[in-house]
């Protein structure tokens, strides 16, 4: 083993001399820094995107929770100031009654269609 060491060292020395000829290029620092910098920019990019997304989400949440955002609110703020609260309630009641009436008509129509269908089937038989 020790004999091996004595022989290996000069043999490996030659390989080391070849390796020592490899010089670091002058622009190595620049090359490395250029590759590192975009990574740093990316590190800022993700929190920025997250912050924008969170802001949009918050805006949407507040918008939908707004009691006056049901579609019945006035077009602008000045109109809102002039319109009394009881009038909103009135409008809502009328609208609900209208929707209920429409639903009733639809249900009657469906029942009538089912009756006609049944009569046609009986006549054919």
């Amino acid at each position: 083993m020790n004999n091996d060491k004595a022989l290996f060292r000069p043999a490996l020395q030659r390989q080391n001399e070849r390796a020592a000829k490899m010089k670091m290029p002058d622009d190595m620092e620049q090359r490395v820094m250029e590759r590192i910098k975009p990574k740093r920019r990316h590190a800022w990019l993700y929190p920025a995107i997250t912050a924008v997304a969170a802001s949009i989400l918050l805006l949407l949440t507040f918008h939908t929770q707004d009691p006056e955002s049901s579609g019945l609110q006035p077009q602008n703020a000045s109109q809102a100031a002039e319109t009394p609260a009881w009038q909103y309630e009135d409008e809502r009641t009328i609208r609900n009654a209208y929707f209920a009436h429409q639903k009733e008509i639809q249900e009657k129509g469906e029942r009538l269609a089912a009756y006609i269908q049944q009569q046609i089937t009986v006549n054919i038989e």
Binding site: A20, K21, E29, V32
Partner: peptide, 17 residues
């Protein structure tokens, strides 16, 4: 980090060589 590149780079080149 550039300082590290300059101080350890040459030895690393010989190592990789």
């Amino acid at each position: 980090f550039g300082l590290l590149v300059n101080s350890h780079g040459p030895a690393l080149m010989a190592f990789v060589g």
